[in-house]
């Protein structure tokens, strides 16, 4: 057999081996990526119902949804007087009452801001960001107000994790980002 054909055969074998190895490598990478994904059981657990009927004014209530804290703050008349056109959009109205409902994680890096009822504002101790009573940002570094979780109004109850028309409107006009 001539050198030329040997070389051709070796090249072919090399390329075939390399090709199959690359294929197997890509498959392995995909399997590794999938192994790091959140489990289906983790993704499926995700609906919380909270009743807003008995929430007192200007007292922060913390609920839990998908392991994250959810802030509920019923607005008093004085607090409503301070809202602007923009920040009012952040509130959920049930009957005459207005509620601030949001994910209690700072939009900067995810610490839980603390509420000061006298100042009617939130302070994130990690990097010094502040929010008003509607959880809109008033001092950087947070880039935006606290995110509002997907919700559906059901009488005086709120189902977190489901998407109702009020939430869709908030998403559409940019009041909140999808969580």
């Amino acid at each position: 057999m001539s050198n030329k054909t040997t070389k051709g055969r070796r090249d072919f074998m090399g390329m075939a081996l390399g090709g199959f190895t690359a294929l197997g490598g890509l498959g392995a990478l995909y399997a590794m990526k999938r192994t790091w994904d959140p489990l289906p059981s983790v993704k499926a657990a995700g609906f919380t119902t909270i009743d807003l009927k008995d929430a007192p004014e200007n007292v922060l209530i913390t609920e839990k949804w998908r392991g994250k804290p959810i802030f509920v703050l019923k607005q008093s008349k004085e607090m409503m007087a301070k809202t602007t056109e923009k920040t009012k959009k952040r509130l959920i109205q049930i009957g005459d009452a207005h509620y601030m409902v949001s994910v209690g994680l700072c939009t900067h890096l995810g610490c839980i801001p603390g509420y000061n009822p006298e100042k009617e504002s939130f302070l994130c101790a990690c990097h010094g960001g502040t929010y008003d009573a509607t959880a809109d940002v008033t001092k950087a570094p947070p880039p935006r107000g606290l995110d509002i979780p997907p919700f559906k109004i059901d009488g005086t109850k709120l189902v977190l994790g489901e998407t109702g028309p009020e939430y869709e409107k908030m998403l559409a006009d940019g009041t909140t980002l999808a969580v």
Binding site: K33, W36, D37, P38, L39, V42, G67, K68, P143, L177
Partner: peptide
């Protein structure tokens, strides 16, 4: 930051928040 790669964060954690995974 503004990229909002929340999916990447959840992938690294294997959960919405740090947990068992």
């Amino acid at each position: 930051g503004s990229l909002h790669a929340d999916g990447l964060v959840e992938w690294i954690r294997g959960d919405y928040v740090p947990g068992q995974a």
